[in-house]
Amino acid sequence: MGDMLVSIWSILANFGMDTGDIANKIGSIIAVDEKGDYTGTLAPLAEVPLVGSIILLFADIGNSAGQSGPTTIA
């Protein structure tokens, strides 16, 4: 099941991108709104094994990157 995802994951890594870059690029299809809910085309897949983990990872990263000014970790 996961072969295709594992492979595309490797292709992305070969570009020299980090997950922050990817989160920026797919921010329009998965994001976190001001209430903390996942939004976007991919949001309904958040519970799917593996796929959901990737989606939530990018959503959280994108959410962190989307903040203006310094990122506060409290």
């Binding site: 994951w9 890594a13 980090d18 593996l50």
Partner: peptide
Amino acid sequence: VEGLEEFTKTG
């Protein structure tokens, strides 16, 4: 991400 390898360049 369980099930995925480390996000590092392999080629």
